[in-house]
Amino acid sequence: MNNREAMLKKLSAHQFTLWEMHLYLDTHPWDLHMVEAHNKAAMKYKLLRDEFEERFCPLTASKASGVEWLKGPWPWEIEECDC
């Protein structure tokens, strides 16, 4: 596992935590304790995502175009490279 893969795994784990809380809040919107936990996790995730995008590659099309957006590896590819 190279640096990019290791950080991508960490980023995905944080995003997953956030998503689990998000789905829970769809059916428990009154749970303010969870809203607070979610907002805390969201801040942490945002910092991590910014760092990942800075070090490796933009994750959404609004943040890059052309060569910068097209450069692999794409999510389904497994070539060893620091994108």
Binding site: E5, S12, F16, P58, L59, T60, A61, P75
Partner: peptide, 14 residues
């Protein structure tokens, strides 16, 4: 919909 250039859980099958 906005595409995010990553998988929900990264896959690497040797």
């Amino acid at each position: 919909f906005v595409y995010e250039k990553k998988l929900q859980f990264p896959v690497k099958i040797k």
